[in-house]
Design a protein around this nucleic acid. Structure first.
Lengths: 357, 357
DNA sequence: CGGGGGAGTCGAATCGATTCGATGCCCGAG
DNA sequence: CTCGGGCATCGAATCGATTCGACTCCCCCG
């Protein structure tokens, strides 16, 4: 075993040049021997590898390689929140999983960044990366877009507000929600409320007033809301502080207090819907007999067994994959175009005709 | 390729040298103007920044900087599983959160890698990084350790099996579990079973036989098991395929089938314990009246409201922070020493004296 | 027997910045 | 009036690899 600390004769890391010298070849040949790109005699390659072993050479330095080749092998994912918040959301995790899978297969690694400028400005500004994916459901991507496009890093959006020069992967949030709302309408529901995703950077809770709504740039949340209101134009909305069961619980309590006659609650995510179910049960309301609840995402949630949530299923994993492929295409110099996925209504056992329909 | 780089305003990327030329200063001065390290006249700095703006220069190229300075500003986290699996675990997420927080504060970014060699070999071998954290609860770190120490990347382990030259952060898994077991013994329990974390790379389920146990190198799981057996030497153990509620459910079903007289189940994680509670309730058993259940971690789990789980609380966030600090210390050339945290027993409402004590 | 061509190797330029030591300059002290 | 000392700036070396074109053999074909 090589002992880095006490190995005689090799102060710090060995370089390719030293390995080449020891093997009696030029640096260029040694490079070819390592990368395998180009004709090298078997015997020569052997000699180089042997020399490398003797010198404890760990392979070409990624920094130097990356300077020369212009590629770092890194694709960044920019999220809005702190990591713990983002990863509490099964949708984000699944998305990331698809991304990691796809870029890993292409030999890239995944760098995690947040766009909170105070903390991660360094990352956005300084981290090496070949492309960046901006994770949507975000309230405001502007700062990240500004910094990264200044750096001329190819950008791909995932459910971001459409904007010039930002190719993206999207789903039919509005149409999906509209179909869900039509399902509820078909069952006879009339008093339907919505629990929305965060609407501003502050993640403030509370009723969504017209003023707040107009001020918001939370693309995904607004689209999903619009879908419900296509069918129930007056549906009240309560804003949650995040896509969490607990947040759904809090928001639903407020809705149930304020709107005693509600017959259905639509969460803009499955987690929010689950919270709403908990809130209903707290009140002694049975789901779906006394109140219907539906969600969005079709996420597989660990430990959920009691209900089969009625929800709008989106191909989350595929979305991640597609976004990653767009990034890879951009890196390959191929043209990138927006990708749109469609959602599908999945009817579970949490929606039914209202009691006194 | 399509390289119409003839327009002065928007060619490919501008370089520092071009900016310097346009500002009428040398490259060295321009560099100082950007980095702020060294004396530069205000007026000169202004001129440089103006030139940069005119040329659309996005700041020094991280690749070149990193070659020259020898630092990439990246710290890697190596996990065993695919991302989605790892992030289903609130402990891993919290750990990562602590790590991200600490290294972000020091200007580093976080690179996510898995140690599955087929997929991420590229990452382990090629990705630029200044240090790497190996996330524990892993069944086998060997391959990752081999590749990375070959590259001479400073390594820090988190709950890894102690090994030469791998400084690490650990907790008193065994003592914590022993205290929990003593609590159960004090209540009068005698027939106690354990649901363990995965014991091998294949993540196989099933009873933990002596043969399997001897073959396992799953440090954390073995330690926690030993803690329980310090008090209940014959406690049977069922291996779960992951730290998930559903896995706890599956394992507990097996235990309840095979051991009808069990009075308590100890999960090696809170998620496993929650699964056990579900399994008990499925059987019509009430917790804690008919059976006691306890866990490990003290994780905050979204949406959990019915029970206050009796558990062994570990300072997960602090553990992540500490690991990150060790890495930063190693990078600063300071000596790094192992860090050990202690756990604390938190008694909730899921443990009580057995029925017929 | 001469020349085309491919395999194997080498030299040297290059990627884009950082950084150390040297230089020129101005100012105040002696 | 001269000399020491800061401050601002510049030159040049350097980080460690990749890569392109050139060069040398040597084999094979005509």
């Amino acid at each position: 075993m090589a002992n880095p600390a006490n190995h005689p004769g090799d102060g710090s890391r060995a370089t390719l040049a030293q390995v080449a010298a020891r093997a009696g070849v030029s640096a260029s040949t040694a490079s070819l021997a390592f990368s395998g790109a180009g004709p090298v005699a078997d015997e020569t390659r052997e000699r180089v590898l042997a020399a490398a072993r003797e010198l404890d050479y760990g392979g070409p330095d990624p920094r130097a390689r990356s300077l020369r080749t212009g590629r770092s092998g890194i694709i960044a994912v920019v999220m809005e929140d702190r990591i713990s918040v983002a990863f509490g959301d099964p949708v984000a995790v699944t998305l990331l999983d698809g991304i990691a899978d796809e870029i890993g297969g292409a030999g890239y690694s995944l760098l995690l960044l947040t766009d909170s400028l105070e903390r991660a400005e360094g990352g956005l500004r300084d981290a090496p990366m070949d492309a960046a994916l901006l994770l949507g459901c975000s309230t405001d991507l502007d700062p990240a877009v500004r910094v990264l496009s200044q750096r001329q890093v190819p950008l791909i959006g995932v459910e971001a507000e459409p904007r010039q020069g930002l190719p993206m992967v999207d789903i039919d949030n509005r149409a999906g929600m509209r179909r869900l709302a039509e399902h509820l309408a078909g069952l006879g529901h009339e008093r339907v409320a919505v629990i929305t995703l965060p609407m501003d950077r502050g993640h403030a809770r509370g009723p969504l007033t017209q003023v707040r709504q107009d001020a918001s740039v939370a693309y995904t949340g607004l689209e999903r809301l619009a879908g419900v209101r296509d069918v129930f134009p007056d549906a009240p909305a309560e804003v949650a502080a995040g896509s969490l069961i607990e947040e759904g619980l809090i928001a639903a309590r407020a809705l149930l207090d304020a709107e005693p006659a509600l017959t259905a609650i639509v969460g803009q995510s499955d987690l929010l819907a689950l919270g709403a179910i908990q809130a209903a049960e707290e009140r002694g309301l049975r789901v779906p007999e006394d109140i219907s609840v539906a969600g969005f995402d079709g996420a597989r949630i660990d430990g959920l067994s009691r209900h089969r949530l009625t929800t709008v299923v989106q191909p989350t994993l595929e979305k991640g994959r597609a976004a990653a492929r767009l990034a890879l295409a951009a890196l390959a110099g191929e043209p990138v175009e927006n990708v749109a996925f469609t959602t599908e209504l999945r009817i579970g056992d949490t929606t039914a005709a209202p009691r006194s329909a």
